[in-house]
């Protein structure tokens, strides 16, 4: 099975693999023209100006996606041209992209957990409430610390939410309460 292909002596070996002479490129070297670097730098400046300008517009919910979109474009410009991924070994691109995949796994599961944490509890109404009463505040080790500057209760949050039986339940999340109220 592993012996399927016979190795000829005139083949070139690269990293243990037998290859034809034209395939055996040990390291990708590419000199990009000067103009390309200038173009990329200008594009980066323009995009920076763009995010800066957009931040003065009130896009509401769209603010984050737009900013992230621009940042992703900037990052891909730097990776492709400054870091030479365009002309580099394909395997380096693979390493880079699979890193992003694992970052994606990391983000997706944790954000999924956080966003769905109250769902079944709320549906059934029987589980403990994770939110604490904002008026009572958090068990705080620091006097005068915590919700001192908290504005009045957001209109959506019910003050009836009781303290969780578990002492280590969720922190007082006024904002979260509002967030959840919006989600339902």
């Amino acid at each position: 099975m592993v012996d399927a292909h016979k190795i000829e002596d005139d083949l070139v070996f690269l990293n243990g693999e037998a290859l034809g002479p034209e395939e055996a490129v040990e390291i990708q070297e590419h000199v990009s023209p000067l103009s390309l670097y200038y173009k990329v730098l200008s594009a980066l400046f323009v995009l920076t100006g763009l995010t800066y300008a957009v931040s003065y517009l009130d896009l509401g919910e769209l603010g984050l996606p737009v900013a992230m979109f621009v940042a992703v474009i900037k990052v891909s410009l730097v990776c492709t041209y400054f870091m030479h991924l365009k002309h580099d070994d394909r395997y380096h691109v693979f390493v880079f992209l699979s890193t992003l995949l694992f970052v994606g796994i990391f983000f997706t599961f944790i954000l999924f957990d956080l966003s769905s944490r109250d769902r079944l509890s709320d549906e059934q109404g029987t589980f403990f409430q994770q939110r604490m009463d904002p008026d009572k505040g958090m068990p705080s080790r620091q006097p005068g610390f915590g919700p001192g500057l908290t504005p009045a209760l957001p209109p959506g949050a019910a003050p009836a939410a009781t303290v969780a039986p578990e002492a280590t339940a969720e922190p007082a999340a006024e904002d979260k309460a509002e967030h959840d109220a919006g989600a339902h």
Partner: peptide, 17 residues
């Protein structure tokens, strides 16, 4: 990399997770 939550079944992570 996609199974770590099984250490946290009773830690207060969401039931769906």
């Amino acid at each position: 990399f996609v199974v770590w939550g099984h250490h946290m079944f009773v830690s207060g992570q969401s039931e769906l997770a």
